[in-house]
């Protein structure tokens, strides 16, 4: 029996964005990090971009694909690194959804890419931190590192937010 396999425009979009995110993730993992635990997280730019342009469903697909496939390529699938990556990605996306929902209730216009990026970076970092603390190093001394991590998360979040905003601006000006 011959089966017809059709793909939609949405599938193509997810595949393209996921491929971009995976490439960025893998290239980024080749560079050594200045401090253990702190990475620029440029792959999150793609997740953010997807979230702002196409909504959370597409962003969820893209970010899950990114986590699973790049861990397969890097050889960390189902390892602690994978668990950290997955928890960070899921928590950051769910807090993005939460923030979007909250700003719908508030009488302020929703945040742009920078606000979302800061929220994503902080929640990504704290999600990873709590998983690391709960499963791998359950020592109260670990919490002394949390302020440093969160500070870097805010700074790097602002940077990736600016990048995302510039990408969105460029794409919007090209399509119109």
């Amino acid at each position: 029996m011959k089966q017809q396999f059709t793909t939609t425009h949405q599938d193509h979009r997810v595949a393209l964005l996921a491929a971009l995110a995976i490439s960025i993730h893998i290239i980024e993992s080749a560079f050594p990090s200045p401090l253990p635990g702190i990475k620029p997280g440029l792959a999150n730019v793609i997740t953010l971009f997807t979230f702002i342009m196409y909504g959370w469903r597409t962003a969820l697909q893209v970010s899950l694909l990114r986590v699973v496939i790049s861990s397969l390529v890097l050889g960390t699938f189902l390892s602690p690194t994978f668990l950290l990556s997955l928890s960070g990605a899921l928590l950051s996306l769910s807090s993005l959804i939460l923030v979007q929902f909250l700003f719908r209730l508030l009488p302020i216009s929703p945040p742009g890419a920078i606000g979302y990026a800061v929220v994503a970076a902080i929640s990504h970092m704290s999600g990873q931190f709590f998983i690391a603390w709960y499963f791998f190093i359950p020592h109260p001394g670990l919490f002394k590192l949390l302020p440093i991590f969160i500070t870097f998360a805010v700074i790097l979040g602002i940077v990736s937010g600016i990048i995302t905003q510039l990408i969105i601006k460029t794409i919007k000006s090209e399509t119109t």
Binding site: S109, P110, I114, G161
Partner: peptide, 19 residues
Amino acid sequence: KELLKPADILIMISAGLLS
């Protein structure tokens, strides 16, 4: 001005306070 909306500033201030 294009980059920053009031909500962004709000989020950044609360992130700073959090840290």
